[in-house]
Each structure stands twice: as structure tokens, then as C-alpha cells.
Amino acid sequence: MTLITRTGEKPEDYRRVDAVEDLRLDERAVLVPLAFASAALAARPAASVALSVPNDTPVEALQPYLAAAPLIAVEFPSFSDGRGLSLAKRLRRAGFAGTLRASGPLIADQFAEALACGFDEVELPETMANRQPVQQWMEAKDIVTSHYQSGYGEDRSILQKRLAARKG
């Protein structure tokens, strides 16, 4: 897999654990399915337990973990399933301040959308990363430089920029 952030590729800090018995194997922080969250938190400090969640998970189900989880990975079953974008938006609204990861076969053309909805990084399967190297992600995210929607991304929307320009 390849991890891509808005500034480029970065190394993985988490070990994906898919079986409860593997939770204690080493000191590296773990990324566990939501179903293992309680077991993992019983075995390790909360700051070392990241959660991987399906894109239809209700925010209420994640509420207990939002304050301490260092990272939440939202699973994208396919690039054309946009539910994860709304979940990201809702997680940010609920106060999640950790790292938000989009995990799955996204395409470079979606990078700007993912970032605007609150994601920090994309975890890409290797087959996808081979076809769409990091450089394409960097180019794709910067082609359209402004957006009309207020409340998305860190910069102001076109509507807000117009208003600011008029008030000069």
C-alpha cells in the first residue's frame, strides 16, 4: 500500500491487525477494525489504537473513540461510492481532530474532494498506486484552484472571496 498526503507520500506508522491475538505483538501503533476496538483498548493505550471503519458506520457508534483515537480510516469499497466523504464531514463536525484516512481504491481525481471533506491522507492499494503514481495525485489536486462551496477545505469559497473583494 501507499499513503498519500497533501504534501506527498509518507511512511505507514500503523500495523493493521485483523485478529485479536495479534494485538500485543509489538509496540507499534495498531489499526484495528471497529469490531476489535474494545479488545484493543483493553490491551493497549488508546493513543496507539487507530480504527478502520466501514463507510456506513453511524457517527454515534464512533463517538466513544473520537477524543482519543489518533487515526480513523474510512473504508472505500470502490472509488465510486461517495458515502465515505459524508462520513468524513460528519466525523469532523463531531469533533474528531485526529488523522482521517480514506482507505481504498480511490483515484487521483478524487484527492481534492477527499481533502475538502476533511481527510488528511489516502491509503491506496499497491495496484492502484502503480497505475496512478503519487505525482499524478499532486497534479490532480491542484488543477482546479477554487471552489464555490463554503465550509469545505481550508481556503475560502469563491462566494466568500467575492464578498471579501467587494468589501475590499
Binding site: 497505475r131 499524478q136 469563491i158
Partner: peptide, 25 residues
């Protein structure tokens, strides 16, 4: 703003067509 947005959208589509042709997409 509208003008730049539409021009950038054309550039984006051109980029997408190129990436389809080179097999990236």
C-alpha cells in the same frame, strides 16, 4: 472566478483524457 473555474475544469478534463490514453485510468 467563474471564468477561471470553467477554464480549470477544461484543463482537468484534458488531464483526465490524457491519463486514460496513457493507461493511468
Amino acid at each position: 472566478f467563474d471564468e477561471r473555474f470553467v477554464r480549470e475544469r477544461v484543463a482537468q478534463f484534458r488531464h483526465q483524457v490524457e491519463r486514460r490514453l496513457d493507461g493511468s485510468l
